[in-house]
Amino acid sequence: MLSNNITFCVSVTLAVLVVILLATLSPLPHRNTSSKPWLALSLYIQQPKTATKPNTQAVAPQDAGALIFHRVLTEGPKNTSRVIGKAQGFIIPAEQFARSGFNIIYLTFDTHEYSGSVSIQAKNLGNGRKDELTVVGGTGSFAFVRGLAVLTQRDDRDTDVVVPYHIRLHLKYPNRSKAVPG
């Protein structure tokens, strides 16, 4: 009986020593110290290649139900620039829905640097040439980002050239140093 108790105590002591040694000698998880909490991107949303008359502007009618669009996202202003993703959106231009939570623009990326999407709330979208919109989240490489999206368009009504929208993203990643409770 005494030998069983001694064997049990030795086994428990060895198990405790192994756990302590593993805890002190195990390498720490790899932490990416070069990752920055902010990211700035400059992109272009290409317009459809339809011919328009000079001095006219394509504007959605005021009584339109919804504007649903699917555009190409490029890294440069020319339509031959490298495609890095797509821009899709759903906007209700009617006055009673101007502040609607449904007004969202999704930018999806598919490059070797970034894979995922950014969601931009477009409820303050105006008719001006520059709009500041709110980034409300993301997925993949952009998981949980917040920030600002500045959407601008040059005024080239004197030419037949279709001008892309320029979008600058200023993204802030969440503080990843906090432990997730659970």
Rank of each mutant, 00 (worst) to 15 (best):
S100M: 05
G147Y: 02
E75D: 12
T80S: 15
S34C: 09
Q121N: 15
Q96M: 09
D158C: 01
L43C: 04
L17C: 15
P48W: 06
I104F: 00
F69S: 08
Q96V: 12
Y165A: 07
N127P: 01
Y165F: 15
P77W: 05
L151N: 06
A58M: 08
R176Y: 10
P61Y: 12
T7P: 02
L67K: 02
I45K: 04
Q46H: 02
T159F: 09
G140T: 06
Y106E: 14
A64Q: 04
T134L: 13
Y106L: 14
S100I: 03
R157M: 13
S35F: 07
Y173M: 08
V145P: 06
R99V: 01
L2H: 10
P48Q: 10
P181M: 04
K78Q: 09
K178D: 07
M1A: 09
A51V: 15
I105C: 11
A149T: 03
S81D: 07
R82G: 09
V19W: 04
L39G: 11
D156M: 08
Q62G: 11
K49W: 03
V135A: 00
H70T: 12
D131G: 00
L43E: 02
A51E: 14
L67R: 13
V19M: 11
Q46A: 09
I92N: 11
T80W: 00
L125I: 05
F142D: 10
K86W: 05
A64F: 11
I68A: 07
F142C: 10
R157C: 06
P54R: 03
S117K: 06
Y165M: 05
T111F: 02
A40P: 01
T74G: 01
S141E: 06
T50D: 07
I92D: 09
Y106G: 10
H166L: 01
A143V: 08
I104Q: 07
V162Q: 15
A58G: 02
V145L: 05
S81W: 11
N32A: 12
E113V: 06
V72F: 09
R31Y: 01
S81E: 05
V16C: 15
Q46L: 05
T108Y: 06
A98V: 01
R154S: 06
H70K: 09
S115R: 14
L41C: 06
T108C: 05
F142I: 08
A149G: 03
Q96C: 08
K172Q: 14
V162K: 12
G128E: 01
V118A: 00
Q57N: 03
F109C: 09
C9T: 12
A94M: 10
S119P: 03
R71S: 14
T80Q: 04
G182E: 04
A51T: 07
Q47V: 09
